[in-house]
């Protein structure tokens, strides 16, 4: 093919502005600086969180031997695990239906599924609270889990649907041609191909659930404290090195999950060589 003079090349001077690089540098320092400070101070020996004395891991030891924190972590994990499994399952089922053909009400269904993305969290939180009160639903871990499932569905849904959209339909036809019935096609052909999408969706749902604060704050009963709720409680009491330590761990968990998600979806892109 003839190359064209309008094509961009990476080593020209085109729209380049000299200060742009510095601007971007400063931006990334701004984006990560505060977190870096937080992580650094979590290893600070001093009780006064912002005065550096020497390196120590004692706040980690202290924080994680605190029973309340342990409980909060366990609660968070239970909520996130159950919510992730349910939301991913529901999202997968919905995505399988919604990606196939057009039908009346499809847009409406898509709209309802993405609703939790559009409604501000505080609105969902207070609405869910009043609803639980109206139906006398006891507040506790179960209520948190139910609320989390709701807003995890769209996050699980997005990557699954994207993966389905990139899938080669002829494979299913080939399967059907080779005497597989619907459920066998689903099990042996569609789901294996969909696996990276489902996994990515599950990761997003898990991240969102484990980080959630506002909705948990409103629908948690006494004794059902999740990690972000516990951290919030500590923050209200003032800056402390334990918060830094717990926050660092939570941050690293999210970081690991995001990175995993990123690599899965990068690989997905690579393997979608159809067309």
């Amino acid at each position: 093919m003839a190359s064209n003079i309008g094509r961009s090349s990476s080593n020209t001077n085109k729209g380049r502005i000299p200060w742009l690089k510095w601007w971007a540098c400063i931006f990334f320092v701004y984006l990560y600086g505060p977190i870096a400070v937080l992580i650094a101070f979590s290893f600070n020996d001093n009780r006064i969180a912002q005065v550096w004395t020497e390196f120590s891991t004692k706040w980690y030891v202290k924080a994680f031997s605190n029973e309340a924190i342990q409980n909060a972590i366990i609660n968070s994990l239970i909520v996130a695990a159950v919510a992730t499994v349910c939301a991913t399952l529901f999202a997968t089922m919905a995505a399988l239906i919604l990606s196939k053909g057009m039908f009346k009400g499809q847009t409406l269904c898509l709209g309802i599924i993405s609703l939790p993305l559009l409604v501000p969290e505080i609105a969902t939180a207070v609405a869910t609270l009043s609803f639980f009160a109206a139906i006398n639903f006891p507040l506790g871990l179960t209520s948190i889990i139910v609320a989390h499932i709701v807003f995890c569905i769209p996050f699980a849904f997005m990557p699954i649907r994207a993966r389905l959209a990139g899938m080669d339909e002829t494979l299913q036809e080939a399967g059907r041609d080779l005497y597989a019935n619907d459920i066998k096609v689903l099990w042996h052909i569609v789901l294996p191909q969909l696996k990276p999408g489902i996994f990515a969706g599950g990761i997003l749902a898990f991240i969102i659930s484990i980080d959630d604060f506002i909705i948990s704050l409103m629908v948690a009963g006494a004794g059902a404290t999740t990690l972000p709720l516990y951290i919030y409680g500590m923050i209200r009491l003032g800056v402390s090195p334990e918060i830094n330590a717990v926050s660092t761990v939570l941050f690293l968990v999210s970081l690991t999950l995001v990175a995993t998600y990123w690599f899965i979806s990068k690989k997905n892109e690579g393997s979608n060589y159809v067309h």
């Binding site: 984006l31 990560y32 600086g33 505060p34 977190i35 400070v37 937080l38 101070f41 969180a49 912002q50 997003l204 991240i207 980080d211 604060f213 972000p228 951290i231 919030y232 923050i235 800056v239 918060i243 830094n244 926050s247 939570l250 941050f251 999210s254 970081l255 999950l257 995001v258 990175a259 998600y261 990123w262």
Partner: peptide, 18 residues
């Protein structure tokens, strides 16, 4: 992207340190 997926509470809190 990473900050978007990390806990907002922690991110806001880190500014108290600043």
């Amino acid at each position: 992207t990473i900050p978007f997926w990390t806990n907002l509470l922690i991110r806001a809190y880190s500014w108290i340190l600043i």
